[in-house]
Design a protein around this nucleic acid. Structure first.
Lengths: 116, 116
DNA sequence: TCCATATTTTTAGAAATATGGAAACATCAA
DNA sequence: TTGATGTTTCCATATTTCTAAAAATATGGA
């Protein structure tokens, strides 16, 4: 992943509504959710929601497909994975004391894991 | 870590100069670097640099200490670790297929690891 | 104290982003 | 084709962010 895309991705997630959208879509995997339903659940006007979805989409954090009149949005989990790898890469080479604990905390990752 | 702090952290990293600052400081761990030296290395005017450093500092991504006339900045690696954990948490509970590969990629983390 | 150095604060203009109503566009059913 | 539904685009306004010069503040040495 390139720097510009990483910045675009962080920028997309650095906004309360968009962070909510992304986390909602993560919970809806792998089915996704139509744009209108996302707007309804988060109480955001369609026009505003559409703008936010396009930001997330351009960053690559969500993908969409048309289904009849609806457009279904899904979280792009592998993209998020790439962005995180980018962030960790620098400390990884030289500071394994950071990545070690992080890796451990992911190892125990199970569907019903405690949420600290 | 709270949502507002996560947004603040992503927002801080979603800017080219600040991402460069943070990555530079990660490479300088654990010694850190004085503000003026960071400005020099990245060719950024001091006033601009100071503004960026204060954004990173407020987000908690860097910490500083005075040493004589200089102020030494260091990357706050554990803060970054927390931010990443927040981002991963949602998919972790329900989508271990994302966290599994991510964890594996961190396990092999050694000082001279390849950078893909 | 006075001066040089290091950094931050103040300030302000330019650019980018957020918001949401109204209109336009796309799809499907009758 | 007409109408209903779902979504996006257009547009204007409000807000935030970026940038960097100038001034202010902090420190240490002479």
């Amino acid at each position: 992943m390139e720097t510009s895309n990483v910045i675009e991705s962080f920028s997309a997630l650095a906004q309360a509504t968009r962070l909510d959208i992304f986390r909602l879509l993560v919970r809806q995997e792998p089915d996704g959710l139509p744009a209108g339903e996302i707007a309804r659940q988060l109480s955001v006007p369609h026009a505003t929601m559409s703008a936010h979805l396009s930001v997330l989409s351009r960053a690559g954090l969500v993908v969409s497909r048309r289904q009849g009149r609806s457009i279904i949005y899904r979280a792009n989990l592998s993209h998020m994975q790439e962005a995180i790898r980018f962030l960790v890469r620098d400390c990884c080479a030289g500071h394994p004391e950071v990545c070690g604990p992080l890796a451990e905390s992911l190892i125990g990752c199970t569907p019903n894991q405690d949420r600290e």
